[in-house]
C-alpha cells in the first residue's frame, strides 16, 4: 500500500529528533498557550495548561512521584508503571495522563497507588537488584527481591530510555529487540551496534547504570566498541568522538563544553557591550 506522506518521521536514515508517529499525542509537552485547568493533587490546589500531565501538576505542587522510564527530554512511554497515581477511581500513568478539564483530583499516595508501586518495584528489583536508584526506591517502599523470581538479574529494567535517547539525538543504533521476558536492548543481530557514534546519550539516559562506558588515553569504550576522541581546539580536552562529529555534520566543532561556554559568554559579552551606551568606545579602549 502506498505510504502516508505525513506519517513517516524517518527520512534519509536519520530521524532528526522527531517523535515517531504515535508517540506524540497524549503526554506530549503542554503548550503554554493552552488555557489553564484547575484541580488538586493530593488535595493541593493547582492550575496547569490544559493537556499537562499529572506528573507535571504534581511537580508544580512539589509533590514527588517516582519515575523510571520518564525523561524530560524524551517522548513518554509509560512502560515502567512506577509513576501510577489514582484519578477517577482508577490508576493512571502520571507521566502521560493528560489533564483536560478543571476539577481533576489526583492522588499520589493512596493505598491503591502505594500497593501498585510496591508491586512494580518488587518486579523491577528482581531485574536490577544492585542498581542504586532501584535499591533506594525499593528500600523506601519496603520491597526486597524475592529469590524465587530472580530469573535474570541483568541490571536492565527495559525502560527503553537509552533507545529513545539514541533515536532522539543519535543514529538509532540500538533497539529493544525480541519480546516478552526475553526483550533486550541490543545492536542489530545481537552484536555491537555498527551505527553507534559513541555519543553516550544512551548511557546518560539509563536510570540503572547498566550501560557501561570508559574513557582512557583519548579513547572511549562503549557497547564493546572503541571511539577516538577529538581534541578541543581551545584546550585540548577530549569531549566528542570523531564519529559523533561526523554524524552531527555541518562542520560540528570539537570544542569541549567549558570552552564552548566560555567562548559563547565572550561573544555574548561583546554583543551586549556593543549595544550599551558608550560600549563601543569602552571596547576600543580595552
Amino acid at each position: 500500500m502506498p505510504g502516508e506522506p505525513d506519517s513517516c518521521a524517518a527520512g534519509g536514515g536519520v530521524p532528526a529528533g522527531a517523535a515517531l508517529p504515535g508517540e506524540a499525542g497524549a503526554g506530549s509537552r503542554p503548550r503554554l498557550a493552552e488555557p489553564l485547568v484547575e484541580g488538586t493533587v493530593d488535595g493541593v490546589r493547582v492550575a496547569v495548561p490544559r493537556g499537562a500531565t499529572i506528573l507535571e501538576a504534581a511537580r508544580l505542587c512539589a509533590i514527588e512521584i517516582p519515575t523510571l522510564c520518564h525523561h524530560e527530554g524524551l517522548p513518554p512511554e509509560g512502560s515502567c508503571r512506577l509513576c501510577l497515581s489514582e484519578t477517577r477511581g482508577s490508576l493512571a500513568v502520571s507521566c502521560m495522563y493528560p489533564l483536560r478539564e478543571s476539577g481533576f483530583a489526583a492522588l499520589t499516595r493512596s493505598p491503591a497507588v502505594l500497593e501498585a508501586r510496591r508491586y512494580v518495584l518488587s518486579l523491577l528489583v528482581c531485574r536490577a537488584p544492585r542498581a542504586p536508584r532501584i535499591r533506594k526506591l525499593a528500600d523506601e517502599y519496603g520491597v526486597s527481591p524475592d529469590p524465587r523470581f530472580m530469573r535474570d538479574p541483568d541490571g536492565c529494567i527495559r525502560c527503553g530510555r537509552c533507545v529513545r535517547a539514541c533515536r532522539a539525538s543519535g543514529p538509532e543504533a540500538i533497539a529493544l529487540c525480541g519480546r516478552g521476558f526475553a526483550r533486550l536492548v541490543t545492536g542489530p543481530f545481537g552484536r555491537p551496534p555498527e551505527a553507534c557514534v559513541g555519543c553516550l546519550a544512551c548511557a546518560l539516559a539509563c536510570p540503572t547504570g547498566k550501560i557501561a562506558f570508559s574513557e582512557r588515553d583519548g579513547v572511549r569504550r562503549i557497547w564493546e566498541r572503541e571511539f577516538e576522541l577529538a581534541p578541543c581546539p581551545e584546550c585540548g580536552k577530549r569531549a566528542f568522538t570523531r564519529e559523533q562529529l561526523a554524524f552531527l555534520g555541518g562542520g560540528a566543532s570539537a570544542l569541549c563544553h567549558s570552552c564552548r561556554r566560555r567562548l559563547m559568554a565572550r561573544e555574548l559579552g561583546k554583543a551586549a557591550a556593543l549595544e550599551a551606551p558608550g560600549g563601543p568606545a569602552l571596547l576600543r579602549a580595552l
Binding site: A10, A175, R179, P193
Partner: peptide, 24 residues
Amino acid sequence: QEALRAVAARLSLPLARVFAVASF
C-alpha cells in the same frame, strides 16, 4: 543479514529498527 540491510536501505530505516521488528 544482508537482506535486512537492504530492506533498511530501501525503506530509509535504521537497521536497528528493522532488526527490532524482525525479532518481534
